[in-house]
Amino acid sequence: MTSHIVDARAIHKHFGTLHVLKGVDLKVDERELVFVIGPSGSGKSTLLRCLNRLEEPSSGSIMVDGIDMLDPRTNINHARRRIGMVFQSFNLYPHMTALGNVMLALRKVAGKSRGEAESLAHAALKRVGLADRADHTPGQLSGGQQQRVAIARSIALEPRVMLFDEPTSALDPELVGSVLEVMRDLRESGMTMIVVSHEMGFARNAADRVVFMDDGLIVEQGPPGAIFENPAHERTRAFIGQIQRH
């Protein structure tokens, strides 16, 4: 038995004639924060989306928290409760309040009563610093606040793993900090996190491991210091040089 909470092996993904993932292995330990970086089109978002099967891998195997994600007998809706996901474009439900956004899955998936779901949702919003915005609709919130509500929507279900797909890329620079702060807080509480992002400062401070992907493959991985200061591969060096210039 392995102790990896996420164990993805030989993941391939084809989109028509496009070969996006070319045999990716990714193992993540419990409480680990893994950063995935790489140029656009390198397959990092697709890899993330394969882990909770928003994208169907063409082949390979994925175990998350002991559940075989690709087994047709697996109840995918139950399995997904254990895997939170935060999107670049927030994807909050615009017809509901912040509280309603957090409550929906608590009620319909976790089967909580209205009262219970409400208090859990309030607690989750408080955790992301938005207790006073519970009754606001997404349209009345800033981008940073929307993303924090999206994080609350995920953590309210008490997932075992959180996936972040470029969580700060759509934000104005002055709003990035508030989201990273929430992510740091989550990390300190021991959440296992896989983050696709180019926030190098955050990676340096918080990540246990940085994975560099290019052209559908993991090129190299290691502690942030090693990857950023002393990459083994030329492609990694070039990429890091590029984003550090910005």
């Binding site: 997904r80 409760r81 939170g84 909050l92 439900y93």
Partner: peptide, 20 residues
């Protein structure tokens, strides 16, 4: 993205359709 968000929280296809 609305359906993806809903499905990622464990809502079924029908539930995503109905509530989201």
């Amino acid at each position: 993205g609305q359906v993806e968000a809903a499905r990622s929280t464990g809502l079924s296809r029908m539930q995503s359709m109905r509530y989201v």
